[in-house]
Amino acid sequence: MKGEILNILLVEDNEDHAELVQRSLEENQVANRIYWVQDGEEALDYLYQRGTYADKTKSPCPHLILLDLRLPKIDGLEVLKTIKTDEKLKSIPVVVLTSSESEQDIGKVYAFHANSYLVKPLDFEKFTKLMRDLGFYWLGWNVNPLQ
């Protein structure tokens, strides 16, 4: 822990799931700030600071991206591909968080250089544990390339 606030970009179309993620992270007292977008297009707008996300102070560059795969407009894989082929964005760790357990998805996701693939647990306790571990690992232990 470096005592600084870490920014997470949560890309999740399901409002309930977004709430669950936020609640779990809060309960584990992982110091962070969550920026939530609901579809792929919005996610890219945020990362490229377009439109409503032009203000860098209100929408800072995330230290971690939590990405759902099935998204309206532009789907998760497309977003992942864009991030990982962009020189500026590709160093941001992307953790795919999805309900899909399809081998095809897992294969594709890693082929596009995602940093991790996590399946949303059905059980609330597991969900909170996963989020806690996720927070500790990526925001605590993991050395972030960004300053």
Partner: peptide
């Protein structure tokens, strides 16, 4: 099938997640 399994799973995650939260 992919869509169905994914989309049907979503509400279950919501239900079980919030039930857990409710209990806590």
């Amino acid at each position: 099938t992919y869509t169905i399994s994914h989309d049907l799973k979503s509400p279950i995650i919501t239900i079980k997640g919030f039930l857990g939260s409710l209990v806590a």
